[in-house]
């Protein structure tokens, strides 16, 4: 396989795309996630790993503008000035969610319109953003279906006629069609069998590198983290216990919990 490696223009851009400072979210007495801070640069892929209930998805929802955090701020640099996504109006935030970033849900049913054809699903964001030419929308949809390895003759089929892996690929096409700068993925390979997972990971890796996307990937699968991410954040009980370069964290874990996590991976 040939890898398309984008030039590391990220290094030329010293400003982070996303700056997260002290984000905390509480569910009553319980902690969802507490005091999370990090910066994400354009073109960088950040992994968030941890066991179930460690606050990964809560954090992702806070970052993606779905749930307002109880404390802390999320700064997103869409133009030149960083923008606190929770201080702008909901209208502006929804516009950002449609254009500048995208969310890939764990369950494709949450991210797709199940009774709308594949072409309509991919075209929705284009139409949201004002596209009104049927032929062009369809052409773009076909292009994106081929990029996620869905045959063009399935364009008028509905997602419920697709396999789980195809649904997940369709969801990715639907998000990436508006050329976002930042993509949030919540367990993108969850619920798929291993061979399908491998193909999806290949695809994601190529797309992320080709488009120079910044991505935040929540996963409990360390293999996924190893393959896709540049940096890793390990969460436990809502707190970040370790973060660093992916290889560094996985090969030389410092925190007791990370050590447990890496040693728990089965090697066949």
């Amino acid at each position: 396989m040939t890898m398309h490696v984008a030039p590391p223009d990220a290094a030329l851009d010293p400003d982070p795309l996303l700056s997260v400072a002290g984000v905390s979210r509480f569910y009553g007495e319980r902690i969802g996630c507490a005091d999370v801070s990090f910066d994400l640069w354009p073109g960088e892929v950040l992994g968030i790993v941890g066991e179930s209930g460690s606050g990964k998805s809560t954090l992702l929802r806070c970052l993606a503008g779905i749930d307002k955090p109880d404390a802390g701020e999320v700064l997103f640099r869409s133009a030149s000035e960083p923008l606190d996504i929770y201080s702008v109006s909901e209208q502006e935030r929804r516009r950002l969610m449609r254009t500048a970033w995208g969310i890939v849900h764990q369950n494709p049913r949450d991210g797709l319109r199940m009774d709308v054809s594949a072409g309509g699903n991919v075209g929705e964001r284009l139409m949201d953003n004002g596209a009104r030419h049927y032929g062009q929308i369809r052409e773009t949809a076909l292009d994106w279906l081929s990029r996620v390895e869905i045959s063009g003759n399935r364009i008028d089929d509905r997602p419920r006629q697709f396999s789980g892996g195809m649904q997940q690929r369709l969801q990715i096409a639907r998000v990436l069609v508006s050329e976002p700068k930042l993509v949030f993925m919540d367990e993108p390979t969850g619920g798929l069998d291993v061979s399908v997972q491998a193909r999806l990971l290949d695809l994601l890796r190529v797309l992320v590198r080709d488009l120079g996307l910044a991505a935040i990937i929540v996963t409990h699968d360390l293999a996924v983290a190893r393959l896709l991410t540049d940096r890793l954040m390990v969460m436990k009980d809502g707190l970040v216990v370790e973060q660093g370069l992916t290889d560094q964290v996985l090969d030389d874990p410092q925190h007791a919990y990370t050590q447990l996590l890496t040693s728990a991976v089965l090697s066949v």
Partner: peptide
């Protein structure tokens, strides 16, 4: 309120596609 009418267009798209 925010004139987000893309979804209406999706319905028309579906009609034409089918």
């Amino acid at each position: 309120a925010w004139a987000e009418y893309g979804l209406m267009q999706v319905k028309l798209y579906e009609n034409i596609a089918r």
